[in-house]
């Protein structure tokens, strides 16, 4: 290993701050952040800013095209599409955030512990993760929701289940690399418990990988939730969900194509925004690009 001169290196912001600064200067990330903020704001503020009640049926205004009165038109029951989209966003975000949060914690802990312990235990755990991975995630989600019933909490469980194995893998690889680093050995030599080494020293060092993964998988979770509702396994009607609205619109595609197009675009934009943010974060935290 080469060495540096005996000088104090110029102070540089550590880890996350540096990554965030770098991500902010990337136009893709900036656009992604704006998209995500707009959609999240619309979803959070839906009860106060949505022009209509999402469940209000108005038989005199059925299948209206977009107009000044109904910005994005109305569906076959005369419900306002814009209002339903804003409320549907709440479901998408709740389910996806809940599922990814759960998967990151459970999967991250599995990967962390398995990678740290290593040996046969690690082989066994990773074999189990491989089995989970060998189910196509949509199929696994489909079956779990179908068996448990289409409730919001079950959607969270189903989507979390599909994401646990990837998180375990993402947490495990850097854990295995880190446990060979001398600072882990130093901690053991100083009498630190395994728990302390694992959670105080290894965990903070793998957080950026897990967070980047989380953003990217949030996009996948939004897509899977929408897909499940599209198939008819989402939160039950009359609750508005983006996937369900797309499905309703698809049934009326000849009469009112906008019914399917607007919810489809909403899903597309949210997934795109999340992918842009995740991409930027990954580039900013990628050790290969970090020194550029």
């Amino acid at each position: 290993m080469s060495t540096t001169q005996e000088l104090v290196a110029p102070p540089a912001p550590a880890g996350w701050k540096r990554a965030l600064g770098k991500a902010r200067s990337n136009p893709t990330t900036a656009v992604g952040v704006v998209i995500c903020i707009i959609i999240m704001a619309a979803a959070i503020l839906a009860p106060w800013v949505a022009p209509y009640d999402p469940a209000d049926q108005d038989i005199f205004n059925r299948l209206q095209p977009p107009s000044a009165e109904f910005w994005l038109g109305t569906d076959q029951f005369g419900r306002d599409i814009l209002s339903r989209l804003m409320w549907g966003g709440r479901i998408s975000l709740t389910v996806s955030l809940g599922a990814i949060f759960a998967a990151a914690i459970i999967g991250g802990a599995i990967g962390l512990i398995s990678g740290y312990i290593g040996g046969r235990f690690d082989l066994f755990v990773m074999q189990v993760m491989d089995v989970l991975l060998s189910f196509p995630s949509l199929i696994l989600g489909l079956i779990v929701v179908a068996l448990l019933g289409p409730e919001l909490i079950n959607l969270v469980v189903a989507i979390a289940l599909t994401a646990i194995a990837p998180f375990a893998r993402v947490a495990r690889a850097p854990t295995m690399a880190l446990k060979e680093r001398a600072f882990v050995e130093a901690g053991r030599a100083l009498g630190f418990s395994h728990t302390r080494v694992l959670f105080r020293h290894i965990l903070p060092n793998i957080m950026s990988e897990v967070m980047v993964m989380g953003t990217l998988w949030l996009a996948t979770a939004v897509r899977v939730e929408a897909s499940l509702s599209f198939i008819g396994l989402g939160v039950k009607p009359p609750t508005a969900t983006w996937g369900g609205m797309t499905r309703d619109g698809f049934e009326n595609i000849l009469d009112a194509p906008w019914l399917a197009v607007f919810p489809g675009l909403a899903i597309l934009f949210l997934v795109l925004g999340l992918n842009m943010v995740g991409d930027g974060l990954r580039d900013a935290t990628d050790p290969k690009l970090r020194n550029e």
Binding site: S227, F230, V261, L265, L268, N275
Partner: peptide
């Protein structure tokens, strides 16, 4: 490509 991988299949299908 970023746009492409953000398309849920049923949305691209409907479009």
């Amino acid at each position: 490509s970023l746009l492409g991988l953000s398309f849920p299949v049923f949305v691209s299908g409907i479009f």
